[in-house]
């Protein structure tokens, strides 16, 4: 372990009724991540500092926060990649209701997810109830299954963050989830109407901020949102595809 040096952290303290940034100074050593520093602050000077965490390995998606204004996982943000010559700001996610300090209530996401039409596979291909799938077909949706539900993409999305369209817009996380179902080679459900009118994919103006903050490096915009937008165009906006559908009915 290297030499310890003091770094100041400016951490949001408060709850739904109000709060403020408070400075804490703690010693940082080689290899530490921001979550280590927060734990050290809890141990040394603020035992009541609320912070959600679990795996400390970037896989549970619990410790989402805004570090120097960027939505990131605290456990995956190394101290040596941050400028520590000035205080390091740690804020809770801005897009979800604040519970206390760095903890937000992300349950809205689970409610939205429940409303998305479920997976509806075609009839089994084989007598034993199994299906046959080509690896190439299922690979595309496997990327979306990497999502750890940290909701950083929801946090950075300006449609939710700035325009607070929570009642109408489901956000990038749920577009990944919808893409995972809609593009699945076995799925027969049609979610395009829901995408257009309930999830309101048209609010997305493809600024790719969701892709930039994803800790799992899922290509959210290019591989999920834009392909879904194109499917919505097929279904509702393109007169030629609609015309062809008269002569060639049936989904997929």
């Amino acid at each position: 372990m290297g030499e310890s040096r003091d770094v100041t952290f400016r951490v949001w303290r408060g709850d739904a009724s109000g709060g403020a940034l408070k400075d804490y100074t703690t010693g940082i050593t080689t290899g530490m991540v921001v979550l280590d520093a927060v734990h050290q602050i809890q141990a040394e000077s603020a035992p009541d500092l609320a912070c959600r965490w679990n795996c400390k390995a970037g896989k549970c998606g619990s410790c989402s926060a805004e570090i120097n204004g960027k939505p990131r996982l605290m456990c995956m943000t190394r101290m040596d990649e941050i400028d520590t010559s000035v205080p390091v700001t740690i804020l809770p996610m801005q897009t979800f209701p604040l519970i206390r300090d760095l903890v937000t209530d992300v349950s809205w996401n689970y409610e939205v997810k429940k409303r998305i039409k479920k997976f509806r596979p075609r009839k089994p291909d084989n007598a034993d109830g199994s299906w046959n799938m080509a690896q190439a077909d299922v690979e595309r949706v496997q990327e979306f299954r990497k999502c750890i539900e940290c909701f950083l993409c929801q946090d950075v999305c300006h449609v939710l963050r700035e325009h607070e369209r929570h009642p109408e817009f489901s956000g990038p996380r749920h577009f990944i989830y919808t893409a995972q179902l809609e593009m699945h080679p076995l799925d027969t459900e049609d979610r395009l109407g829901q995408l257009k009118d309930e999830q309101n994919i048209g609010y997305c103006n493809i600024t790719k901020c969701c892709t930039k903050v994803c800790p799992e490096h899922i290509t959210i915009t290019d591989n999920a949102i834009i392909p879904l937008k194109e499917r919505v165009v097929d279904e509702f906006y393109d007169p030629m595809t609609r015309l062809f559908r008269i002569f060639k009915p049936g989904k997929k």
């Binding site: 949001w12 408060g14 739904a16 009724s17 109000g18 709060g19 809770p92 801005q94 897009t95 979800f96 209701p97 604040l98 809205w108 409610e111 939205v112 409303r115 963050r161 607070e164 929570h166 009642p167 109408e168 817009f169 489901s170 309930e198």
Partner: peptide
């Protein structure tokens, strides 16, 4: 079916 709304006191 509308999604639930949220209240964001920290945003203001």
């Amino acid at each position: 079916m509308a999604q639930p709304d949220v209240h964001l006191p920290q945003r203001r």
